[in-house]
């Protein structure tokens, strides 16, 4: 919009509903300021009903869970113990009205907390806070689910060893994925163009595997940090 010379008053939109991936309060304010809208958070998962499990009200103060359809609990992901209001833990759902695909205490792997306090808007349904992350190693990058094993598959497929590091960041409110790959003698030539071409092939391979544009950085051998013999695969620098 800025590039097109458009300001927040140039579009008649009043509100937007944003889901599918975690975001920060700063990111919300940025979207609201740039587009001149109110930006609301929504949460859902395919196994329950897709979007519509919970949503923010006009107070933007946590997402109201549709408790007439779902029972929500927060558990300790390690012990399974139910945690009190305000504690961060794994969100668990039981469905009350699903007939073909009912779920009992279904573990979402999403990390959040619950509050049973009445919302300033007057509703009494339980609210969940902004998502803090996931319990498994799956990364959500620009709304796309990414597993490190997918990246590993692309590298191995193109003849690279599985020495790699995934660096995720958020720059100007857009997730960035940078895959560091260790250069090998087999892949190296004296020709800059040839090396660039190999790098581009990796970018293409990752795009067709993940559906995402990733950056590939070729690094010197044995430079990727290993702790106790096992490589540190993912560095997530996003502050949410």
């Amino acid at each position: 919009m800025k590039e097109m010379g458009m300001g927040p008053n140039d579009i008649p939109l009043k509100a937007g509903i944003f889901g599918a991936e975690a975001w920060s309060e700063n990111m919300r304010r940025d979207i609201e300021g740039t587009m001149g809208i109110k930006a609301y958070d929504i949460y859902g998962l395919t196994e329950l009903c897709g979007p519509g499990v919970s949503f923010e009200c006009s107070d933007q103060h946590g997402m109201h869970i549709n408790e007439d359809y779902f029972i929500a609990e927060i558990i300790d992901p390690k012990t399974g113990e139910v945690l009190p209001d305000g504690s961060l833990g794994e969100l668990v759902f039981t469905t009350l009205d699903k007939e073909a695909f009912p779920l009992l205490r279904y573990r979402t792997r999403d990390i959040t907390s619950l509050s049973h306090e009445q919302c300033p808007c007057g509703r009494t349904h339980v609210r969940m806070s902004r998502l803090k992350g996931r319990t498994d190693d799956m990364l959500i990058i620009r709304g796309v689910n990414v597993f490190p094993s997918q990246i590993e598959a692309v590298l191995i497929n193109q003849g690279y060893p599985a020495n790699y590091q995934i660096i995720v960041d958020r720059i100007n409110n857009t997730d960035t994925l940078d895959v560091h790959v260790e250069m090998t003698p087999e892949m190296f030539t004296d020709n800059l163009g040839e090396v660039n071409k190999k790098q581009a092939e990796l970018v293409d391979g990752l795009r067709s595997m993940l559906g995402l544009k990733a950056k590939v950085t070729l690094v010197a051998p044995k430079t990727i940090v290993r702790s106790e013999g096992k490589a540190v695969r993912v560095i997530d620098n996003r502050k949410i």
Binding site: M183, T184, P185, F188, T189, D190, A220, P221, K222
Partner: peptide, 8 residues
Amino acid sequence: AGFINSLT
């Protein structure tokens, strides 16, 4: 010394 090199 750990430097990847090739001969041309």
